[in-house]
Design a protein around this nucleic acid. Sequence first.
DNA 1: CATAGCGTTTGGAGCGTTCCAACCGCCTGG
DNA 2: CCAGGCGGTTGGAACGCTCCAAACGCTATG
Lengths: 343, 343
Amino acid sequence: MVKHRPKHATINDVAQRAGVSKSLVSLVMQGSPNVSDTRRRAVLEAARELRYRPNAAARSLVRQRSHVLGVVLSDLHNPFFADVADGIEVEAVGAGYRALLSSGFLDAERERNAVDTLLQLRVDGLLLLGNVAPIERFESAALSIPIVAISREAASEWMDTVCDDDQLGAAMLVDHLVALGHRRIAHISPGVAAGAPGRRAGYQARMQHHGLGEHTTIVEGAFTRVGGRDGMAALLERDPRPTAVLAPNDFAALGVLEAADAAGLGVPGDLSVTGYDNIFVARMGRVDLTTIEQPAAALGQTGVKLLRERIEEARTEARHIILPPALVVGSTTGPPATTVGPG
Amino acid sequence: MVKHRPKHATINDVAQRAGVSKSLVSLVMQGSPNVSDTRRRAVLEAARELRYRPNAAARSLVRQRSHVLGVVLSDLHNPFFADVADGIEVEAVGAGYRALLSSGFLDAERERNAVDTLLQLRVDGLLLLGNVAPIERFESAALSIPIVAISREAASEWMDTVCDDDQLGAAMLVDHLVALGHRRIAHISPGVAAGAPGRRAGYQARMQHHGLGEHTTIVEGAFTRVGGRDGMAALLERDPRPTAVLAPNDFAALGVLEAADAAGLGVPGDLSVTGYDNIFVARMGRVDLTTIEQPAAALGQTGVKLLRERIEEARTEARHIILPPALVVGSTTGPPATTVGPG
DNA sequence: CATAGCGTTTGGAGCGTTCCAACCGCCTGG
DNA sequence: CCAGGCGGTTGGAACGCTCCAAACGCTATG
């Protein structure tokens, strides 16, 4: 059995084997046109034989560019982030970058750790995807590297943001429910996590707008199934019980549905439920959630474009982009049971 | 407005500001005990002021170690991989490594690309998570860096593997269905993708074992919802139609359920459906899929342990570890409609 | 008083690249 | 016949860091 050989071939090994200087090898590797065909073939051949792979660390050291974009996702389990990440990857690869992901595990400390690792690796730019820590925690990092926060409405002077119009999205859901006849509409909100403040504000404002300010009910609950279950548990203790619940995202909505099912409440007969994100699970026939569709891929692509402006064109003033959300009506919303007739 | 400053402070900047040599700064950064308190404080202070962050590229260049593990996931959207990735991250961080993810997007070419990027970054080890390309494509990479393939039964002389017992898992599902009275049990299989061959073999062998060899029916279909839908579409054209379907994983099973719902087939009345992985969606009340639970976190943790053996203890002979699966019975399986009585 | 030893600090070499200036032939034009 | 130019090639400096050997200033010891 051949011994495992962890040592990598270097550009010098290749140069020696091909009988040329390391500079020539470098030129060949970069696809320079000013290399004779014979030498080029010799170098390529030697590189293949030695299984040579340029050392990205050494390269980025001298180039001062890594051509890698870092992505910190708050939750690997949430399909919405996967959709956004797809958009990021497509746009990044198209522009000659690679995207490297790191999970923040819905924890502020681990999020910070992930950011730090990526920063030490000297990625060219950083995309924050639904981070849970308050945005100020990332401002100091934004001084030394371009950062784009996705799904973060909070405007920062130092970093760019791109998100959907959370306030509008929440308002659309309230409108939809009010049109169905609901009045006691409650909201579950995850505090300061990405997206939460906007949705909460939109909900509150729109309730006021409809003259339902007194029915405004907000309970705490995370962007997860457990968060939805917890929030719903809290709402079940209210008397009178709300007839409709705006979950902060689809994940939480699934938790709400589970809690409702467990409590023997019919959906939408006894309770209407809405989500946010339109993840694939929401569109499964057996779930069919009423929700807000965010333009996930577009969010990711726009994020990369913003990063490139800073990296390649040295833009310094912050840009904040808002993309339009869309209402998707499923079968988890309907008229409240107590409403009789259309009046 | 202050100008954006992409230039990072170096160890020399810190040294100069603190009035010491760069060597001393290096020592402080590495937490060496042989540094006087005064100097240490001065260095730390200077580093903070300059927002200094060690350059991981330069460090890994001289150390020949990056303390980063690369993870290539075949599909970011599949929650099963997220579970495994969690296991990886936990174990990696505990051992002083960081995990960096890259998606292969269920495409052999992009998978190769992802591997190459990570290789160029000189990660200390690589974890392949449900890769779709045949394993031989990664063998040459395994010569220059430790690689562990997860959910890959194919034994390789050059890289380690850790997976659950796919053959056994598939057999358990067949046993379960046979016990319910099924005979026409079909299987959807994604060819050579990770996990597929073992499950297919287990299905075939167990059908034989039960004397149902003639009812063995295999159609092509990927590890995705669309794959499940396609496979089910093909099966719906068979006459007689199978009474039970073994989807290759939960994702595909969701597609099968959708196709069955669309075709007006009751589950489990007209058709029993099983998955594989036990992802969270399978456990939602409205789905409640019969499936096989893979020890996801354990798979990830074991993978990291194997990597560390190669990295830190220079193990060279390959190890192949198999973890036990478990049957999870839900409400998508039941006796076939045509069966009368227990005979 | 010279020496040894200890804790602390430092300069310099080297990690694998890129890139620049310089160089080598060779051809062309005056 | 020589200056100039050009395609092809090369050595060496630099990137930011670690680590080694050596030096430093002390104190304790013979």
